[in-house]
Simulated assay, not measured.
Amino acid sequence: MNFILSEAYSQYKNDILRILDNFKTDGVIVGHGNRNTVKFFNVDQLKFNFKSFKQHNFINRHVYKYYRKSKARRSYEYANLLLNKNFYTPTPIAYVEFYDFWGLTSSYYVSEQLDNCFPLTDALHNPEFTDRDTIFKSYASLIYNLHENGIEFIDNASGNFLIKKENETYNFYLVDLNRMNFHTDFPTDKRLRNFARLTDDTETMKIISAEYSKLSGVPVEYCLQKINEASEKMVRKRKIKKILKFYKYFLKK
């Protein structure tokens, strides 16, 4: 076992180990993820969020032991990196990895459970949502600032942004952190392709494109064109994947 714990939470080591022993039966499930299991647990007056990553296949188990950092470790390290650059993410507490002779058997990322927040998805799918335009502009500003810091948040989907209104400001907390790229040279087209996973709604993308254009100095027409192209490509990929899954299902029968 590899157990890395933030010094600020060192007194909770035994609590975390106890929770891991009872992870399958205890805790409150958060969301409905298909790949990973996320639960929160009460520890004293605190709430700890545990993300258990899906069991890897035989080859990847070996890869994640000897050649690549586990998703749990990357989540912990990237969370600290974001905080050091003054971005918001739930406070990282620990990551834990379990191994056998061959490779990684399971891994967990532990962070603060964020309450009194809502996902960007809520504003995206509800045209009547309060301050909707302001939220989209704040989102565009966040992504621009990430890009300016050379950070490409690959899982740039609406469910991976939790929003808290604090002192009349909408603060965005990034979650699901294990997939990021870091660039010293981050070209405009690559930056704009980073929006592909968000939405294919044209009106929403107009708001985001206008704000990103204002901040970056890139013409708004160019921003909208490249974002829409990336979004359309992502939609096509998802449709192809669904078709392949459909045929795969019937081939098994």
Rank of each mutant, 00 (worst) to 15 (best):
V30D: 03
T188F: 11
E166Q: 12
S107T: 01
S6R: 02
R179I: 00
R191T: 09
S106F: 07
A94K: 03
T184F: 12
F153T: 02
R197Y: 11
A79E: 03
H147W: 06
N126R: 10
Y212A: 02
I4D: 05
G103T: 03
K233C: 13
K65Y: 00
R193S: 12
S138K: 11
T25E: 13
D21I: 06
R68L: 07
L124V: 08
A210D: 04
F23L: 05
F50T: 03
V110Y: 05
A94P: 05
L192A: 07
K54Y: 14
H183V: 02
P90Y: 08
N22R: 06
K137P: 05
K206T: 10
I151N: 05
S106E: 10
E7A: 15
S106R: 03
F3Q: 05
A210I: 08
V175M: 01
N57I: 00
S111A: 03
G33Q: 07
I154H: 04
D15I: 05
K39C: 09
Q45I: 14
A79F: 03
E166H: 06
K137A: 08
L174E: 06
K71S: 06
K69V: 01
Y78D: 00
D115A: 14
Y170M: 10
L120F: 08
F87L: 02
N22Y: 04
A210N: 07
L142V: 00
N36H: 09
S216P: 04
F129Y: 15
A72M: 00
A157W: 09
R179P: 01
P119G: 10
L20E: 04
D15C: 05
N194Q: 04
Y67R: 08
Y109G: 03
